[in-house]
Design a protein around this nucleic acid. Structure first.
Length: 551
RNA sequence: GCGCCUGUAGCUCAGUGGAUAGAGCAUCGGCCUCCGAAGCCGAGGGUCGGAGGUUCAAAUCCUCUCAGGCGCACCA
């Protein structure tokens, strides 16, 4: 849409130059903006191009605007133009332009909004990546909603996207999991036990311990898993189920331990050694990350011989890059932001381009119930699980709420509000768009109105007035919203767009009847509504929120 | 102390260097003989944390500063 306008302006500038009205050649044009006007009195679009040319042309901005404006108005799509304020050119488009746009939305259908700006570039989005030592909590839920929506948005913008979950199934944490299970097993066998500070205390460990005892009894052929192995696979299964409940499926589940099996971690450390980027100090093995922009050097192998998580991460990121991705997106909890410099350093140390890495930080979720904070904290072994929230408020409301803020802002999540089916709940407000459209179509059919074909639009141009065009104009922005959402990696933009759409649509509905005595008006409005429903459901799909036909 | 994030309406938050800074909630006042009232109409409400600077133009960019959060491991 903006592209169309931009072309019109460029053509006008060229014509003005050819006619000797402008000194500035096409090649010397500044990067001007085309904006959808904030107010209708300012037209459909405005551009600042004249103001940017003042220096080069040596004339007052309004004079320059006047002559460009005249050229722009010569375009067939343009109804009229005017010069406003300090030198804006306001462009009023012919309504035929908008009706053609509506036609394009209808013919694109479920594809409307998708584009090819991503040019098929390969992007990997790694998110959630929770330790397999406990259930997903609400913070993971936010990361999951953002990561998944981002993946969908990128796909819609023409990127080739892979969603990956990195399983931290090596190292200290899972060792503690195994110990916790073994202790609970002893307890089940009547022994008195004491759980240490590092042990997992939730009841789910007891369940796993019971299952493990059963599994051991049954025996079965082949190798017997250790308590740790058994625990990990039970936890992963659990996590996978919770995510599925949340509408999320990963393309890859990447095991940290598998890096080890292939000796990749050791190999990577050896390589760093050969580059003299590694040294021994205080019995530990250090990596010279400071040389590459980190605050200080980092330990790879601790004095006790155990490797750090960072050591695996070097091999992991290198493996990701070797898989041929153009961009790696890491979705992390905000408490990990100190880790970014370290990872960037490892890219540079390995000779990889760290501009391929994009880290998205997910801020905290403060859980409220009717405005009162819900106590959280893992310490007591009690936390609010994602599953609990999904069960209470539903997956749709949950996902929508997580996507109502940009991810690096803290989020208040009020369970009562998310649950409420009143108008104050924005999820329903948006879902209601599509449901309402379908309901109107049903009503029209009942009344014996023939549902128009998309192709009938051409003859209905005069049925679209200012109010209808206002809606179409907003529908037309959808593509740009997705493009920008993908470019900035900010899926919340789609959420806001949809709330705005609903905020235009419902008032329109209330002011105007669709099924009227005038067949042309009825057809025009049915087609307009169809397009609104299409955009609303295309948008909700990007968020991973369902589009119920009835509510 | 250093680094990152956040300060915008009573609350929760949008906002792409542009025009008179927006939305939802809350508050107050209205609207169901009428395609769904899970809806609509209207009103009030602002020192964009503060101070400088760049610019024709700053909530937006730069510097400083204040406040809050997070991080600064041989944890993950």
């Amino acid at each position: 849409m903006k592209k169309d306008i931009s072309e019109i302006i460029k053509t006008a500038l060229k014509a003005a130059h050819a006619a000797g009205e402008l000194k500035t050649q096409e090649s010397a044009l500044p990067a001007f903006t085309v904006d959808q006007s904030k107010k209708e009195e300012f037209g459909d679009f405005s551009t600042n191009v004249a103001m940017l040319l003042t220096k080069h042309e040596g004339k007052p901005p309004r004079d320059i605007a006047a002559l460009i404006s005249k050229r722009i108005s010569e375009d067939e799509n343009v109804e009229r133009t005017e010069v406003a304020g300090p030198g804006f050119i306001n462009i009023f488009l012919d309504s035929a332009y908008w009706v053609r746009l509506l036609g394009r939305i209808l013919s694109s259908g479920a594809e409307y909004g998708s584009s090819t700006v991503g040019k098929g570039k390969r992007v990997q989005v790694e998110f959630v990546s929770a330790n397999p030592t406990g259930p997903l909590h609400i913070g993971h839920g936010r990361g999951a909603a953002v990561g998944d929506a981002l993946a969908r948005v990128l796909k819609a913008a023409g990127y080739e996207v892979t969603k990956e979950f990195y399983i931290n199934d090596a190292g200290r944490q899972v060792f503690n999991l195994g110990e916790s299970i073994q202790l609970r097993m002893q307890e089940l066998q009547g022994k008195k036990i004491e759980l240490g500070e590092n042990h997992y205390k939730g009841d789910y460990i007891i369940d796993i311990a019971k299952d493990y005892i059963e599994a051991l009894k049954k025996g079965g052929g082949g190798a017997v898993p250790t308590a740790t192995e058994f625990g990990i696979s039970a936890m992963i299964k659990w996590i996978e189920e919770d995510l599925k409940e949340f509408g999320i499926e990963f393309d890859e589940w990447f095991s940290e331990g598998s890096l080890d099996d292939e000796g990749l971690v050791t190999k990577t450390i050896e390589e760093l050694k050969s580059k003299e980027l590694v040294y021994e100090k205080d019995g530990a093995t250090w990596f010279r990350t400071e040389k590459f922009g980190d605050d200080k050097d980092r330990v790879l192998i601790k004095a006790d011989g155990e490797r750090t998580y960072f050591a695996s991460d070097i091999a992991y990121h290198r493996d990701k890059m070797a898989r041929g991705f153009d961009t790696l997106v890491n979705v992390w909890g905000a408490d990990h932001h100190g880790y970014e410099a370290r990872v960037r350093a490892l890219f540079r140390a390995l000779g990889l381009d760290d501009s391929a890495l994009k880290v998205i930080f997910i801020q905290l979720v403060a859980l409220l119930r009717g405005g009162v904070p819900v106590a959280m904290g893992k310490r007591s072994g009690e936390f609010v699980t994602l599953r609990h929230v999904i069960d209470e408020v539903g997956s749709d409301a949950c996902r929508f709420f997580f996507l109502m803020r940009k991810s690096d802002a803290q989020l208040d999540f009020d369970l009562e509000l998310a649950k409420s089916q009143a108008s104050e709940n924005p999820v329903y407000y948006v879902q209601y768009c599509n449901a309402r459209v379908l309901s109107i179509f049903a009503h029209a059919k009942e009344k014996g109105v023939k549902i128009p074909e998309d192709s009938e639009l051409a003859g209905l141009a005069d049925k679209f007035g200012a109010e209808e065009i206002r809606l179409i104009r907003h529908l037309g922005r959808f593509e740009e919203v997705i493009e920008r959402s993908a470019k900035e990696m900010e899926p919340h933009r789609v959420t806001f767009y949809l709330m705005e759409l609903a905020g235009l649509f419902h008032p329109y509905y209330n002011r105007n009847r669709v099924v009227t005595n005038d067949p042309g008006t009825t057809k025009a409005r049915l087609l307009l509504f169809k397009a609104v429903g299409t955009v609303a459901s295309n948008g909700l799909k990007l968020l991973g929120v369902s589009t119920p036909e009835k509510m």
